[in-house]
Design a protein around this nucleic acid. Structure first.
Lengths: 150, 150
DNA sequence: TATTGTTATACTCTATAACTATA
DNA sequence: TATAGTTATAGAGTATAACAATA
């Protein structure tokens, strides 16, 4: 669709599918995920468990079902993620008094501590990911993606 | 890092990890991949086999190793992708005369035909993916991603 | 009957290791 | 020795189905 926005590999050679924005999104995701996963490894967190912890910190207490909906994670996968966060002592699985089916998720003090460290790591990881962009360009990219990432 | 670019879910509620561009990239990728996968299904192509076919069309004849490097696909995965494209009659696996170890990949007339249809589908899929953006904004997003997607 | 959480299971995707044929 | 391609295998990651507890 665009002709002056050609994507080229590190070697400077053009690549046909680089014409499609979706290909660039996939490629950016591959890189961003690898960078972030490596950066989080020392904390024994993954991008997924980090995101879950951030949502629990923000919206807790909330149910596992609600967490899954917000992050587009299947409920069976949520079980595994919360298992891990609970085992590490970062999240408390309580029972909701009003509806005793739901597990009420709440971040612990240790969870807040590690979340703070992980957020710094996330900032560093993004600095590397977006190193080629100016501050204004980073904001533009963020704002545009927010309107595509439904 | 930014405070005025908040990501909100379809319900209009903010989501903590939406502060990180990497989260938005992951989310955009999830949506773009699902849209494109569904759109390509009638042609029995996947986003990966489509990208492979596009590269073979552009750069063929080329080896499986070269294809894998360009698309960041493991060589064992390349085997499966090329198997599929060959079985469908879209790609010819020849032998390189100079180096008889390499499989020289070349698109067939049927491959060019289906690639053309798939490109139209890709355009339609992108129109849906980027529906909320103006033409200028789409170009901006594309150009910015090209500088992040190494 | 429907929903929350859980387990067991299967399926997809990708990576690792070992092999062959060539160089 | 090294590389291209292949196969078999194993490992993530995720989804499906069936279940218990509760609504």
């Amino acid at each position: 669709m665009t002709i002056d926005n050609e994507f080229t590999t590190a070697d400077g050679q053009p690549l046909a599918p680089g014409r499609w924005t979706g290909f660039l999104i996939a490629r950016a995701h591959l890189r961003a995920h690898a960078l972030f996963q490596d950066a989080l490894a020392p904390l024994a967190l993954t991008p997924k468990s980090f995101g879950s912890l951030a949502v629990i910190a923000e919206q807790g207490p909330l149910s596992q079902a609600a967490l899954g909906e917000l992050l587009r994670i299947d409920r069976t996968t949520v079980v595994a993620v919360v298992d891990e966060l609970e085992r590490a002592g970062y999240v408390h699985r309580g029972r909701d008094a009003a509806d005793r089916r739901v597990h009420s998720l709440l971040i612990t003090p240790a969870g807040r501590q590690v979340l703070g460290e992980a957020e710094q790591i996330a900032d560093h990881s993004h600095a590397e990911l977006l190193a080629d962009l100016s501050a204004d360009e980073r904001d533009q990219l963020h704002a545009l993606l927010a309107r595509v990432a439904h």
